[in-house]
Nucleic acid binder design. Structure first.
Lengths: 240, 240
DNA sequence: GCCTTGAAGATTGTATACAAGCATTTTCCA
DNA sequence: TGGAAAATGCTTGTATACAATCTTCAAGGC
């Protein structure tokens, strides 16, 4: 009887009930979070996840710890895991960090970019335009990650990837109109083809600042998960 | 009988055999790694650590996973954990990342630095000068971390802290003369007191480039842990 | 003498059992 | 009827047992 409820709780995360490996579970959860199928504040009971993925709590705990270290999930002792609700302060922090990092990396990106890179970026941007809204968010994240990978600095790319994921959480909490990246990416591709550094950096700075400016920090509080926002959309738990 | 050997294997990590929490174990291992008491390539058997810290493998595995995500430890399936031996490529990657990040953050550091900050930095530099060689490495890492924390960007500070820790590993593998940071930090403090951005950035760039230039990448290979280096110092396993 | 093949030992991977803590509800008293 | 305290149930924290895999060592063949 518990199983049914647990399964329902996480409907939409997985395709069918089969045993998956560590990384596959991480991937599934990551996508569900970045695509806003799991909203900030949502609780992630270990038993429910274990049941849904057909593994024991051991693996689930490992995955949750990894997500927690990446700040996508908040782990509180004896209170379990829930999707992180970034505070306004953290949100501004992430955008400042992204402006700095992406701005700096663009120098090397412009130097090293190849036609293959441009093609890959074009393809992602294309998918982004035709994708459903949920997947568009994930593709937008992939676009930025792929772009910055061109700089060829694995350490910074990884750090930046985490910042990009967290941006998705921030938009989930504070986004007003439901837009993530308002599909400006094709414009950047045109600039990249031209190859002039200055306008590219300007574009990126405005791109990030524009997203940040579109947020509304007045709604929710700082510390606690914003249940108001959660309830506004739809509640995961059924009341039985 | 196993216990004795295990305990001996990790001598010097802990003060006495008592039960510690998750974070305390992480801290102990982190310090042991950064201070080069555990050299790159050293194996970290779960049973041995569990015995040494008086906890079960469960906690040890969690700590090892965290260290692995920070790239201080390498986890290979069915083959256990060992201290990461950065490849020359990774080493250059880390230094490039540090030059970029620390250079960029210095702008905000100079803007926001307070007398209290200067005092704290002075104190660390002072301890550094009087400390034993092992602890000096850790203090040097703390100096850089404390300095960059002034910029007030938690996300980037955290990423940078990981890069700084990894630098310690790099020095352990490729350092020729046993110098880590050759105690140039007081010079930086003088520049910070003057408050001119340009010379500070120049200093930092030369500082990092100088450390990188002092490394010798010809010795060890790329992929595997360098047992040559390990044996050169002293072996952890006794031959019984 | 060296390489290949097999078996024993040791270590990790996963699941589960039990203990500890928190949340909710129920009950009792004012 | 409202509030507070206690008890029950649920969730997580930790340890341990067992299975799977790798490594090592030994024996046999080339």
């Amino acid at each position: 009887m518990n199983d049914t409820r647990q399964f329902h709780l996480l409907a939409g995360i997985m395709t069918e009930r089969d045993t998956r490996s560590d990384d596959a579970i991480y991937q599934s959860l990551w996508e569900a979070i970045v695509e806003h199928r799991l909203s900030p504040g949502a609780r992630l009971p270990e038993d429910a996840l274990a049941g849904a993925f057909g593994v024991s709590r051991t693996m689930i705990r490992r995955v949750l710890q990894r997500l927690a270290l990446e700040q996508l999930v908040t782990l509180r002792t004896h209170r379990g895991a829930q999707i992180t609700s970034p505070t306004p302060g953290e949100a501004r922090d992430v955008f400042r960090a992204r402006r700095l990092l992406e701005g700096a990396l663009l120098t090397e990106v412009v130097e090293r970019i190849t036609p293959e890179d441009l093609q890959a970026l074009t393809q992602i941007a294309e998918q982004e335009r035709h994708a459903r809204r949920e997947q568009a968010i994930r593709l937008s994240a992939r676009f930025h990650a792929r772009l910055m990978a061109i700089a060829g600095n694995a350490s910074l790319s990884e750090a930046l990837s985490q910042l990009i994921s967290r941006t998705s959480l921030i938009i989930a909490v504070y986004g007003r109109h439901r837009a993530g990246c308002p599909c400006e990416h094709p414009d950047l591709i045109a600039l990249l083809e031209a190859g002039e550094l200055a306008p590219i950096q300007t574009w990126m700075h405005q791109h990030l600042t524009g997203i940040e400016a579109s947020l509304d920090f007045t709604a929710s509080g700082d510390a606690l998960p914003d249940f108001e926002h959660l309830f506004g959309h739809h509640r995961e738990q059924n009341a039985s």
